[in-house]
Amino acid sequence: MENKVIYGLYGDDDHVLAATKKIVSKGYRVNEVYSPYPVHGLDTAMGLNYSRLAITSFMYGLLGFGLITLLMWFIMISDWPMIIGGKPNFSYGQALPAFIPVTFEATVFCAAHLMVITFLFRCGLFPGSSSRNPDPRTTDDKFLMEVSESDPKKITEIKKIMKECGAEEVNVKNSVKELMDEIDGELSKKNKVSKRRKVKKSNSSFLTNIINKIKRK
């Protein structure tokens, strides 16, 4: 049987959360939810594991702490010890208070930057990345839920649950690409129209038009 993707579009975070909980409780898996802002409780409802980014940050902090200590020990104590301001540098402990500010800064530097790099890497985010949300409205005010299923009976059940929980639109597509292509088509059509009419500042009406068009279908 061919695998289908069911998309439910919601206009309220409570609805999408309720729908997720219900669909998961029926034994289905919610592939993905695209949302304009973080919905609290959604990650647990979808069964996502807790993020371990905070732990990596701690590790990176330790790394920074170690590296800077090594560097300062080498520069100030080992390579060329000097007496500065009446304070000898014959051992690390002797001038320890003077090393603490830089130690702190370097620890924070490594903890912050390396964690952010880990975050970008794990999420596959980088400048020029072509990935995006299937429906552009999900960065505005809509929530898009994605469920994969092949059994037509189950598809109907999922569609029913989605609608019950307040979905504004429910679509069944063969793949993400199909949905995206469709929306892109709408977009480019719209762009051509707007160019011809030389409408420069049409902002709010633009997306509502798309929504209306899709609804008319």
């Binding site: 939810v33 695209y34 996502l48 993020s51 990345s129 990935s131 995006r132 949300n133």
Partner: peptide
């Protein structure tokens, strides 16, 4: 950066 607003990404 290709942000898509996925649940895991938000988390």
């Amino acid at each position: 950066f290709g942000w898509s607003g996925r649940a895991k990404h938000w988390q």
